[in-house]
Design a protein around this nucleic acid. Structure first.
Lengths: 214, 214
DNA sequence: AGCGTCAAATTTGTATACATTACCGTCGAA
DNA sequence: TTCGACGGTAATGTATACAAATTTGACGCT
């Protein structure tokens, strides 16, 4: 896509993710335009994209606000993630190429290393590897529509807060579940992969709600 | 949303749905602008929306073409529809209000009347009632994200071609399955509702592929 | 003859000016 | 005092002009 439009999209999204733009805050096009150093036009396109992703919401008139997904929204997101990522895992199990499987093993080795990092676990490293791992599954599922839906569903702030709530034992359990997914993939067992992934997401859900007053 | 932008969106979408704009056809902004009687700006916004819905696709450069979803795409769409509509039915079973349930019974009565129409079945009437019925389920599911996903997934051309492939017996079976869904809703049985809906979509899938060379 | 390169033309991306619409405060009347 | 209407203000919606980029065609070279 275009340069300015993409830059505006990335910046606004990161500001929302980083908390600089708080949930419920109004977003005025002109203000964002000066913030991004571009004109209103690309800002408008960025807002349209964010609206489609439900990162922002707009009122009956055109006013745009930062979406304050909380409570039921979180429940929805995790329920749909479980459904769709489980489906993705099932598809991936019967389609993944051996090369991609090797790559995923390497990714999970990195993840395990981050978990067992000397002193405290390397949460940032964990997050990067975790993200790459899940992305690889979606890639192997070979379903553009599914990929698009999951991209809109997985809010990184939620994933990050979830992981930062994990203690070392939970991080290790995540790594172990990833290992089990790899075993299911190696055997082409779709049902197994789906079950493990569903449980994986479900556990993340409870970890998230326990410490965030869901 | 805005007047002109909405009009452009509706017109372009209907032209694609109606076949006037064939799959693979290039879409030039200026041409569409004159066609819709508006400027390029609202056309651009309409194209962004259609892109998010995967009704059109755009190349590395900004060129936009009518998406030619066929073959694997159809499989994907039905698989995801089964998953998500099944989930919607499960949620609806435990949440639907008695008033909404009554309304759905009325809708299905209309649908049955269309099926048993004197002479040939009234397929247009069937489609209208069918659409209203499924929309009511999504509404009762009370999940905005789920609703947004399904809206992007259910291409009316596909639904229409599916229904037009049905013979009278299949139309009657659809009506019966709807009736079973209503029974599941009345008892608040989420598992039952989900199973019936999944089967319902699956049958539609096979009906579609049988006569469309899937 | 085929291929690479360069240039012209067409198309999209961006910016800005203008029109329109929604919001909000104020004023007036019940 | 509260409700409703009205007008000012500020935001979004639209149109157009200009800049950037990509495609396409032709020309020259191998």
């Amino acid at each position: 896509m275009s340069r300015a439009s993409d830059a505006a999209y990335a910046l606004i999204r990161s500001q929302i993710g980083g908390g600089t733009l708080a949930p419920g805050a109004p977003l005025r096009e002109e203000e964002l335009a000066t913030l991004c150093g571009v004109s209103r036009t690309p800002v408008r396109e960025a807002l349209r994209r964010l609206e489609a992703e439900m990162v922002v919401r707009r009122t009956d008139g055109g006013r745009v606000y930062v979406a304050d997904w909380a409570g039921d929204d979180i429940d929805e997101m995790f329920a749909l993630r479980g459904l769709l990522e489980g489906h993705a895992a099932a598809r991936a199990a019967t389609r993944i190429a051996s090369g991609a499987l090797l790559e995923m093993r390497a990714i999970n080795a990195t993840l395990e290393a981050a978990v067992r990092h000397a002193g405290a676990p390397d949460v940032t490293g964990f997050l990067a590897a975790n993200r790459a791992f899940h992305a690889a599954i979606v890639e192997a599922a070979a379903s553009p529509r599914l990929a698009a839906m999951l991209a809109r569903l997985i809010e990184q702030p939620v994933v990050q807060r979830t992981a930062r709530n994990y203690d070392r034992a939970q991080l290790e359990r995540s790594a172990a579940e990833h290992g089990e997914l790899l075993a299911a993939f190696a055997r082409g067992d779709a049902d197994w992969a789906e079950a493990v992934m569903t449980a994986h997401i479900r556990r993340a859900y409870h970890a998230f709600t326990e410490r965030n007053g869901g």
